[in-house]
């Protein structure tokens, strides 16, 4: 069965750019969802879990680091991989969000190669 993807970012334009970059990286998803913040993402996950979440950090309502903690409390999302996609890239932040349950980190600005590198381990 094909994989499903959710892109969480407060900028609609950035969501489109991420989607385009994912496509350029050659990775294919059967189902893609979008959410503008953590609250919206949790709401959409209730309607069906996804395999991979690409998650911004700085967002209104609920930021990405809080979303990671919340998703990790949902038993159905045990297998969901969360990759942070953020302009913030301090080692301290990366370490703390990985400790909270994220599975990877992509820094903005990004390239299709970066998505290929970080997502392909989770595509099998």
């Amino acid at each position: 069965m094909g994989k499903s993807l959710m892109i969480v970012d407060d900028s609609a334009t950035m969501r489109k750019i991420i989607m385009r970059t994912v496509r350029m990286s050659g990775l294919e998803f059967d189902r893609t969802e979008e959410a503008g913040n953590g609250v919206e993402a949790l709401e959409k996950l209730k309607g069906g879990v996804v395999d991979i979440i690409l998650c911004d950090i700085n967002m209104p309502e609920m930021c990405g680091t809080d979303l990671v903690k919340r998703v990790r409390q949902i038993p159905d999302c045990n297998g969901t991989k969360i990759i942070m996609v953020s302009t913030e890239s301090s080692q301290e932040l990366i370490d703390s969000v990985i400790a909270d349950g994220a599975n990877g980190f992509i820094c903005k600005p990004f390239t299709p190669e970066k998505f290929q590198e970080k997502l392909s381990p989770f595509m099998n």
Binding site: S11, T13, M14, T87, E88, S90, P109
Partner: peptide, 16 residues
């Protein structure tokens, strides 16, 4: 939105 994100990404690099 795009210009906001450009500013956001530039400041992210400055921060680093």
């Amino acid at each position: 939105d795009a210009i906001g994100e450009v500013a956001n990404m530039i400041v992210g690099r400055v921060k680093k």
